[in-house]
């Protein structure tokens, strides 16, 4: 009994420590992003940030579009199955629109980005730890948070909402194709239905989620990468951890914010 309590207690403490570590990376990162440059403690690495933005967006946009397009189609078929029996198939457009902007867009892009960007950031930083590059930075009076974390965090914060926006449009387009080609809906009717049902607040909640998931992915990946110990094996472990923990984190944040938006807005 007391053994079980001990294990649970230790696990809980471990989670708290982990969240503390993430919080440290996030706040130190934000400090170096905003206060550092203003107080002339160290400039922002613009070129590197741009490079990371390209890496996060252009290279992932293809797979994001593919996933969202198919999910949009799948969702349309599934909804039509229910709505047909009620005789209101045309509401497929409304449901796809709302589901994509408020939920599926940010969530699915988050998942894809975790595997795509999170894993590669963790592996990259982990390798830098193993090859003594991070120690070399510190010893060269260059703060690793400013030098490595800020460009990646900032790039994720800028690009994630954009990628989510694109993904959401593609998802809605997937639903549109199914609606017009298989559900005998008029394309104009489908469009007006979608546009009428979507309010600014729906786009806003989606973009807030995108921002949060993007920061989460970058922070978890940087934390995992920078805390690698040991050799190549440690890098592999960090990469796996970055993916699994980001996914869990995204799901938890998604629930919390969905509940918040539901009760507040």
């Amino acid at each position: 009994m007391s053994h079980a309590v001990g294990i649970i207690g230790r696990g809980f403490l471990g989670i708290l420590t982990y969240i503390g570590g993430l919080g440290y990376i996030l706040f130190d990162g934000l400090w170096w992003m905003v206060a550092g440059p203003i107080m002339r403690k160290g400039r922002l690495r613009g070129e590197e940030t741009f490079f990371q933005m390209v890496r996060l967006s252009f290279k992932s946009i293809g797979i994001v579009s593919l996933v969202l397009f198919f999910v949009g189609m799948i969702l349309a078929f599934q909804m039509a199955y229910v709505l047909k029996s009620l005789g209101v198939v045309k509401y497929v457009a409304d449901i796809i629109g709302i589901a994509m902007t408020r939920e599926m867009g940010p969530l699915l892009v988050g998942m894809v980005m975790t595997g795509y960007a999170g894993a590669s950031i963790a592996a990259e930083l982990g390798t830098m730890v193993v090859s003594e590059e991070v120690v070399a930075l510190e010893a060269g009076a260059l703060n690793p948070i400013r030098f490595l974390v800020v460009p990646r965090l900032l790039a994720a914060m800028i690009m994630m909402p954009l990628v989510v926006l694109i993904g959401t449009y593609v998802g809605i387009f997937g639903g549109f194709i199914v609606g017009v080609a298989f559900l005998d809906m008029d394309w104009y009717e489908y469009m007006t239905h979608t546009l009428d049902s979507l309010k600014a607040i729906d786009w806003l909640t989606g973009l807030i989620k995108a921002e949060i998931f993007g920061s989460l992915i970058a922070v978890v990946a940087c934390y995992e990468g920078l805390s690698v110990t040991g050799g190549a094996e440690g890098v592999g472990k960090a990469t796996t951890n970055a993916v699994t923990r980001s996914i869990v984190g995204i799901i938890i944040c998604d629930l919390v914010f969905t509940a918040l938006f539901f009760s507040l807005l």
Binding site: T127, M128, S131, E132, E133, V135, A136, A139, G140
Partner: peptide
């Protein structure tokens, strides 16, 4: 300081 690391520790 200037530091030469055992592995070189170049930024790859």
């Amino acid at each position: 300081f200037g530091i030469l690391f055992q592995s070189g520790a170049l930024f790859n």
